[in-house]
């Protein structure tokens, strides 16, 4: 199912995309988890990736963040030149292929993710959990940290303020010193979001952010996703099961099934798209 529309679309918008997946394939032995998939995410866009169970959404995700090295295809990412080399012009944008970059280097490019089942450290306070997101911005080495030399102390203080801001952004600053273990799930989800904000992201990828949330919490999440986009001026890629949330919040949606591209369009069109409906309801004809 080669899709000409998408290719043309991405050619037109090379200047505005932040992420462009090109002919991405990921094979596990004989299983084609992702098969020749292409789509792109524009700057300042909230983009949804949907599909029925086992469609390969998480695999796409892991190929973008380089937990998997894709069998074929490219993942182009546009970011500030200053993130690529020291002294680069922060306003100039540069594009690079993420394939092959070590997984722990990805975040320093401004690409950060959340996890399906929240990954917070129970034994740490909320603010310390958020601070983990600022890991790459610490320049002080272990000696400076062990001796608490001025630079280490300064960085810690500045980062703590930023973390507090991030917590405040989600209205949970009053809980900052409480341990993460024992906090309600909704709060932990917010902590995870706050953590992504600490690295000044260009693109936040959220893996099923609505999983395990009740309806009112999902509403809150919808607002928070928009808030993040507006306040931090970044793009958001949602991988989601909850159709309500996706239809509500996304500017555009890409639907996949069995690792293959189905359709990519604005929510209203996706809702009425025959192929997508079939994939979700099962082909009974």
């Amino acid at each position: 199912m080669q899709n000409n529309e998408i290719t043309r679309d991405s050619l037109l918008s090379t200047e505005t995309y932040v992420l462009r997946i090109e002919n991405l394939s990921m094979h596990f032995g004989g299983l084609k988890a992702v098969d020749d998939l292409s789509f792109h995410v524009n700057r300042n866009e909230i983009f949804g990736l949907i599909g029925p169970n086992g469609a390969g959404k998480t695999t796409v995700f892991n190929c973008i963040t380089q937990f998997y090295t894709p069998t074929r295809g490219n993942v182009f990412f546009t970011t500030d030149a200053s993130r690529l080399q020291k002294g680069g012009d922060p306003s100039r944008q540069e594009t690079l292929n993420l394939v092959g970059i070590p997984v722990h280097k990805i975040i320093s490019l401004g690409l950060v993710r959340t996890f399906q089942n929240v990954e917070v450290i129970k034994e740490l306070s909320l603010i310390d959990n958020v601070l983990i997101g600022g890991h790459i911005d610490f320049k002080a080495n272990v000696f400076e940290q062990a001796l608490k030399l001025p630079r280490a102390r300064r960085e810690e203080k500045a980062m703590r303020e930023k973390a507090l801001e991030a917590l405040d952004f989600f209205d949970i600053a009053d809980r900052k010193d409480m341990l993460a273990g024992g906090q309600p799930y909704g709060v932990l989800k917010k902590v995870e979001l706050a953590r992504t904000l600490l690295c000044k992201p260009k693109l936040v990828i959220m893996d099923e952010p609505a999983a395990g949330l009740n309806d009112s919490e999902t509403d809150g999440l919808t607002q928070n996703i928009r808030k993040i986009r507006d306040a931090y001026n970044c793009s958001i890629l949602l991988v989601e099961h909850d159709m309500g949330l996706v239809m509500n919040v996304c500017d555009r949606i890409c639907a996949i099934s069995f690792g293959r591209f189905l359709a990519c369009d604005v929510p209203e069109k996706i809702r009425t798209n025959k192929i997508v409906q079939e994939a979700y309801l099962g082909e009974e004809e």
């Binding site: 963040t65 937990f67 070590p102 997984v103 722990h104 280097k105 990805i106 975040i107 320093s108 950060v112 993710r113 996890f115 990954e119 917070v120 450290i121 129970k122 983990i132 997101g133 890991h135 790459i136 953590r195 690295c199």
Partner: peptide, 13 residues
């Protein structure tokens, strides 16, 4: 210790 995957995603080598 919490999760190697999450740690790497946060930039910890």
């Amino acid at each position: 210790r919490g999760s190697e995957v999450a740690a790497q995603a946060m930039g910890v080598s």
